[in-house]
Amino acid sequence: MTVSPDEPEVVVRLTVNGAAETRSVSPRQHLADFLRDELGLTGTHVGCEHGVCGACTVLVDGDIVRSCLMLAVQADGAVVDTVEGLSDSGEIAVLQQTFLARNALQCGFCTPGMLVTAADLLRSVPEPTREEVREAISANYCRCTGYHAIVDAVMAAAHGTEQKP
């Protein structure tokens, strides 16, 4: 990678989806670009780069954060989990199943962030109301679904019932 003059790279060591990673990065690279461009984890999407849309939501040390609002170097020593890791571990399998069954996605661009956010909600509030689901996902823009199906899918995952559309 070519770098600008006067831009020394910094070594960052972190755990991503359970694997230890070491990379030399430009300080100005945000975590979302790092995950996508350096690690090839393109499930984390970049929708606005100013912390509004929620498409880049990942877990850092177990907490959901906007990965566009964190520098990659700030994740040095951290444990980062992305939608790919949560998929492979089976951690969000139930939500994925209800999202699919309920068509809680159309273009799918918001979906990784939406799943990470919904999984975080269900960890702290296992049996949410529709209002609680709406409030939790209000941090994540979806331009396709109208949200209704997403709320249905999260409710179905939480309450173990497959709701009919």
């Binding site: 984890l41 661009f109 979906t111």
Partner: peptide, 8 residues
């Protein structure tokens, strides 16, 4: 798309 494996 739900697995982070979309190809945009």
């Amino acid at each position: 798309l739900i697995s982070g494996r979309g190809r945009y």
